[in-house]
Design a protein around this nucleic acid. Structure first.
Lengths: 363, 363
DNA sequence: GCCTTGTGCGGGAACGTTCCCGCATCAATA
DNA sequence: TATTGATGCGGGAACGTTCCCGCACAAGGC
C-alpha cells in the first residue's frame, strides 16, 4: 500500500487552524464581539459573552500569538546573552553562577509575562535580527564585544551591568563587587590573615575589573603586598593551576607562602581544597579559604568552604523589575540598581576556637 | 530645569519605526519592489535592486519580524522544557547534564535558524499559549506530567524521549540507557567487582526506569544480588546520603559491604569520593567507582573518577536534526533515534596493575 | 413626540510583511 | 505592422488579531 491510500486517498492534510472568524460564524456573532468576549473587554450582554466563550471552547479555538503581537506591537519576548566566555559559547551554563542567573531570569520573566530566548555571544546580528525581541539582557559583557552597540543601534533596549551606564536605551543592574571584596578581605584579616592571595580570571568583565581594583585598593590601604594570580582560562583545570601557582609562593619560590586565599575564579570548592592539601596546607589552620561561588558543594566539603554569593536570583529579579518598569511604564530613570552580596562564612575561613557565622540567618 | 525643557521642549517621542513603505517612498519604488530587492527574489533590474538596498541601508531599515512571521506562518521559535526536577523548577540548569543539553540545544537550534525559549515545567498552559512556538522540546518528562498531552492537544509538535513513542505528532530521541548500564556493570565485573551497588534517583523518568530495569536484568543474568539505594531528592546532599547508605552495607549492617559503586544520580564526583573515604574505603583498592555524570571535575580528582557520559550534545543534535526534518520537510518517519553513551574509564574503577582506557580516543 | 444619553453589537481599518497577479514596455518574429 | 513572449515593476489581497468608530435601539427628560 502507498501512503496516499489511507483516509480516503488524501495524505491527511494539516487540518486548518480555527480562527476568530470561524468561532464568530459558528456562534452567529461578529469577530469583534467574540474578541471582546474572550478578552473581557467591550460592552456585551452576559448571554452573548457566554455564548462566544462556549463556542470558542467547544471549537478548541486558540488565538494566534503572532497576529496578536502584530496588533499590539510587542512580542513579550526578551533575549538573553551572556558575554563572558565568548570564545567557548554556551559553556556559561556550566558555571553555577550563570546557570542560576539564567534560570532565575527565565523564571522571573515568565512571572512577569515575558519569555526568554537564549542567544549566543559574538554579536552575530543574523541570530536575533529575525526575532521580535522587546529587549535583550546582556549578562556580563566583555569590553571587546560589540553586541551592546549593535542592539542599541537597532533600537532594542538593553539591560546589562554597570558598564553600560549612561548610554541611552541601556539600563543596568550590577553586583556590588567592591563591597564583596572588602567584606571578604576584612573577614580574612579579622581571622588572622596577613598574606592574602587573590586568584581571579583574566577577564575584561566589569565585575572582574572591579574586583582587581578593589583588591588593589584594599591592599594599599592596609599596607599588604598584592599577590594576584590570574587564571588564564575558565574551567576547573586552569583555575586549579592558578590556585597552585598562588599557593606555591613567589615567582622564585623564595617569598613566604600566603596564609589566605580568595578565589574569585569559578572552580569546584572540593577541587580547590584538594589542591591546597596537595601543597601541604591544612585548611583552615595553615590557609584560610574564601571562594566566590554559587557551587552547591561548598557546604558539603570537609571543612565546608566559605563562599561569597553574588546573588544571581536577586540580580535577575532586580533586572526584570527594571525591565518591566521601562518597557511597560516608559520609565527611564533611575536606570540602575546595585545588589549586595552575601558572605557565607564556613569552617574553611575560621581560625580554630572561633565559631562560624553567616551574614544571613540560617533557614 | 524640568525634563520637558530639553531638545526643543518635546519629551523625545519614540521616533517611529522605518517600514518597508517608507523605504519604498524614499526610493521612489513600490513596497513590492523593495521587498523583492531585499529578499533577492522577483525579476528586477540591477540598478533598481541596488537602489532599493542602498536606500534601506541608509534609512536603517530592519524588517519587522512579527509581520514576517504572520505572513510565513512560522515563527522559527521552539520551546524547551525539562520535565525532571519539576518540584524545584529551573534547578535543572544546575545539573551539568541538563546545562549541557540546554546549551547544545540552543546552539544547534540557532545553527538551523531556530531560537530556543526556556519554559517552566508543570504544563502551565498560560505560559506558552502566548508564544508562537513551532515545536516544543520536552527533555526527560516525568510520568505524571501532562505537558506532552497538552502540547499535542494544541497541535504543537513535541520532541521528547522514547516515552512518547507512537503518539501522533510526537517524535523522540533517547539515550541508550540499557547499554550504558550493561557496559558499566560489565566493566566493573571485569575489574573484579562481585558486589556492585547502584545509587539512582527516585524518579519516574524513562531514563531512570530503564536504568533500574537494566540493572535488575543484569543482576539476574549474572546471579548477583541487587543492591539499590534510591536518592530521595536531587542535589548533592541527598545523593551523598544515598551513597553513604549504599556503602554502609545491608539494612542491619550485617551484610558484606559492596566492592563497587555505580552512581547514576547526579552528584559532584569529589563529594562521592570523600564520602567513600569517610566510610573507610580506599578507591579503587576497596571500592571501584563509576558515576554517570557530565561533571567536569571528574578527571581532576584523586583518583580521577570513571564516568559514563550520556552525550547531551549528541542528543541535542540528533533531536534538532529530527525536528528540522519534520518541520521543514514534513517527514513523519522514522520518528526516533537512539544515541549511544560513552564510558570514560579512569583510575577510580581500575584495579591496580591495570591501565585505564577510554571508549573514545583521547584528543 | 423630540432630543439626549446609554447600551449592545458589527463594519472595517490597521499592524507590516509577502506574494499572486496584471499591466506596461520592448525586442523579436511573422 | 500586428502577434508573441519575455522582462520589469506595481496594485492589492492576505495572514489573524485588536480597536476605533458608527449604527440601531431603548429609556428617560422636557
Amino acid at each position: 500500500m502507498t501512503d496516499v491510500s489511507r483516509h480516503g486517498g488524501q495524505p491527511s492534510r494539516p487540518a486548518p487552524r480555527v480562527r476568530l472568524v470561524d468561532v464568530a460564524r459558528e456562534a452567529g456573532l461578529s469577530k469583534t464581539t467574540v474578541s471582546a468576549a474572550l478578552n473581557g473587554t467591550g460592552r456585551l450582554s452576559a448571554e452573548v459573552r457566554e455564548k462566544a466563550r462556549e463556542t470558542a471552547r467547544r471549537m478548541g479555538y486558540r488565538p494566534h500569538p503572532t497576529a496578536r503581537q502584530l496588533r499590539s506591537g510587542r512580542a513579550r519576548l526578551i533575549g538573553y546573552v551572556v558575554g563572558e566566555l565568548a570564545d567557548a559559547p554556551w559553556t556559561f551554563l556550566e558555571s553555577p553562577y550563570f546557570a542560576r542567573l539564567t534560570g532565575a531570569t527565565a523564571a522571573t520573566a515568565l512571572e512577569r509575562g515575558y519569555a526568554v530566548v537564549l542567544l549566543p555571544v559574538g554579536s552575530l546580528q543574523g541570530e536575533w535580527a529575525e526575532l521580535p525581541l522587546d529587549a535583550v539582557v546582556v549578562a556580563d559583557p566583555v569590553a571587546e564585544d560589540r553586541i551592546v552597540d549593535d542592539l542599541l543601534a537597532a533600537r532594542i533596549p538593553v539591560f546589562s551591568d554597570r558598564s553600560v551606564e549612561g548610554r541611552p536605551g541601556a539600563h543596568w543592574v550590577d553586583v556590588d563587587a567592591g563591597e564583596a571584596v572588602r567584606a571578604s578581605m576584612e573577614h580574612l584579616r579579622e581571622q588572622g590573615a596577613r598574606r592574602p592571595a587573590l586568584v581571579a580570571p583574566d577577564s575584561t568583565t566589569r565585575f572582574h575589573t572591579a574586583v582587581f581594583a578593589a583588591y588593589h585598593e584594599w591592599c594599599a590601604e592596609h599596607g599588604v603586598p598584592e599577590r594576584v594570580v590570574r587564571a588564564q582560562a575558565p574551567g576547573n583545570g586552569p583555575v586549579v593551576r592558578a590556585v597552585e601557582t598562588a599557593l606555591a609562593g613567589g615567582p622564585a619560590g623564595g617569598e613566604e607562602r600566603p596564609d589566605a586565599l580568595f578565589v574569585v575564579a569559578e572552580a569546584s570548592p572540593p577541587l580547590v581544597l584538594d589542591a591546597a592539601r596537595r601543597l601541604g596546607y591544612r585548611v583552615p589552620d595553615d590557609l584560610l579559604l574564601v571562594c566566590v561561588s554559587e557551587d552547591t558543594t561548598a557546604p558539603h566539603t570537609v571543612p565546608p568552604v566559605t563562599t561569597v554569593s553574588l546573588r544571581p536570583r536577586e540580580v535577575a529579579q532586580a533586572g526584570l523589575e527594571l525591565l518591566v518598569a521601562v518597557l511597560e511604564h516608559g520609565r527611564q530613570e533611575p536606570s540602575g540598581t546595585l545588589v549586595p552580596t552575601t558572605l557565607d562564612v564556613r569552617a574553611s575561613s575560621v581560625r580554630h576556637g572561633q565559631t562560624a557565622w553567616t551574614s544571613r540567618p540560617p533557614t
